[in-house]
Design a protein around this nucleic acid. Sequence first.
DNA 1: GTACTATTTGCAACTTATTTGCAAGTACAA
DNA 2: TTGTACTTGCAAATAAGTTGCAAATAGTAC
Lengths: 141, 141
Amino acid sequence: MPTTSDADLLRAHEMRATTPRLAVLSALRKTKYPMSAHDVAKAVRTKKVDMVTTYRTLESFKTAGIVTQVELQRGRAYYELSEGRKDHHHIVCINCDTVEDFTGCDYDALVKKALRQTVGFSSVTHHSLELFGMCTPCSKK
Amino acid sequence: MPTTSDADLLRAHEMRATTPRLAVLSALRKTKYPMSAHDVAKAVRTKKVDMVTTYRTLESFKTAGIVTQVELQRGRAYYELSEGRKDHHHIVCINCDTVEDFTGCDYDALVKKALRQTVGFSSVTHHSLELFGMCTPCSKK
DNA sequence: GTACTATTTGCAACTTATTTGCAAGTACAA
DNA sequence: TTGTACTTGCAAATAAGTTGCAAATAGTAC
Ligand SMILES: [Mn+2]
Ligand SMILES: [Mn+2]
Ligand SMILES: [Zn+2]
Ligand SMILES: [Zn+2]
């Protein structure tokens, strides 16, 4: 029995399994850091995937929940596969752009606390949390 | 004894008290929500402040610590006065863009937890946390 | 008040990220 | 194998923010 292929993953989200989409998926799988549209485009350039297609693909993956958009405050969008990685966040070096994951934001307690405080909100659908600082190599200099 | 004026605030940060800067400060004071560069520009348009000046002013205020930049995931930068508001965060309606403040992210514990988990990081300088959901009016429909 | 100078501003042009329109190409159900 | 709805590529358009530079001005020194 073959493990579910990327083509099946796409079809499970009612998307056709096209060459550009499979290439983008594969690129995202190979990288452990979040990727920008340009990072992805560079990774799939051998397949001659247009930049616009890269943008559209990432957007549709996001809508489908295949990728999660990450806010790294670099003036562009970053994405990583949603698969497997639940509620983790990122610590980012403001000097060299290194990124590491961490977990433990205690989402449920946070949401409860926030909803108790606010007057006009009744539900939370998602959240964004990132830490910015210096990686050890960068802080030694 | 007069309360410290905005002009003095600017001079305290070695900035000249110019008409555009005073206008931007005043606009930020009047609004309780974070403002984008366009929001600010609109608010000071009677003073004929150029858009570029608005951008430059907000940037210099940020560097001086007069404003704090807020990430609302709307593809542009938002700012609010730093003054007084310590470590609070925002809950944002994904439907109508309403924003409310909340506090209680337990920053110190979070940083400690994150630094214990990561291998390559030694310090955290700032963080970003926001919740996204539906405000009560928007969820009733 | 007047003059001086370093800052700051406005305007035009530029860059970068992302979006849109549309004709041509292709996955896949039949 | 065919038909068609979904996708793609290319060109052009937006949108946010930046840069260069000459003209304007705040703060300081007479
Ligand atoms: Mn991650
Ligand atoms: Mn706030
Ligand atoms: Zn670093
Ligand atoms: Zn709402």
